[in-house]
């Protein structure tokens, strides 16, 4: 009887905050955790098929187009990659990965719904993160994916056009939004 619309809902429904930097919850974004050791047969092709990129170097993001647009692959650990793609394409991509890695030791799982994604934009967007993360934001290298602590929770971020993208777990999205809003308040610029 039920006819549920299959429209996914992000954790905060696109909440936003305007301070000296602009904070927006975006998403849901398609995300796949791919665990495989580099050198696994078919891995490069699998990633290529799923998101159109090569395998990223240690702590780097690869994008199939201009940075931070649509499809990409990030280095999470020596045997873990984060694939980013439009939410609706996840099941197709998972199937492609499964196909390309058939018979190999690998694990690909959908984690799109386990995450919350934020954009922090503005000239001083980095300061918002500098207030929360024990990471040297000013020395973030081009294309670097930094996993670290965001106040009391785990997070990962990278720089893109005009700001940063930050990923956290979904259950703490409200907490992270609170942190980012607190840190972005007008008048609290670090200089």
């Amino acid at each position: 009887m039920s006819d549920l619309s299959a429209k996914p809902v992000s954790a905060l429904g696109g909440a936003s905050f305007d301070g000296f930097a602009k904070v927006r919850e975006i998403g849901p974004l398609g995300m796949i955790t791919l665990r495989a050791k580099p050198g696994t047969k078919g891995l490069d092709q699998a990633v290529k098929a799923a998101v159109g990129t090569g395998l990223p170097a240690v702590r780097r993001m690869e994008w199939s187009g201009p940075a931070d647009t649509g499809r990409g692959c990030g280095w999470m650990s020596p045997d873990e990659f984060l694939l980013i793609l439009p939410y609706a394409e996840v099941s197709t991509a998972l199937a492609a990965l499964e196909q390309a890695l058939k018979g190999e030791h690998a694990l690909a799982v959908d984690v799109s719904d386990a995450r919350a994604v934020f954009r922090i934009e503005g000239e001083k967007a980095g300061q918002v993160l500098a207030k929360l993360c024990p990471a040297d934001i000013d020395r973030l290298e081009p294309g670097e994916l930094r996993r670290t602590r965001v106040a009391q929770v785990a997070g990962a971020f990278w720089a893109g056009e005009g700001g940063y993208t930050l990923v956290s777990f979904r259950s703490v999205a409200g907490y992270v939004m609170g942190l980012l809003s607190h840190s972005a308040m007008a008048g609290s610029e670090l200089g």
Partner: peptide, 13 residues
């Protein structure tokens, strides 16, 4: 920043 609503992370289903 750890006070009020963001004193500690609250996990929400």
């Amino acid at each position: 920043e750890s006070r009020g609503e963001i004193f500690q992370p609250l996990r929400r289903s």
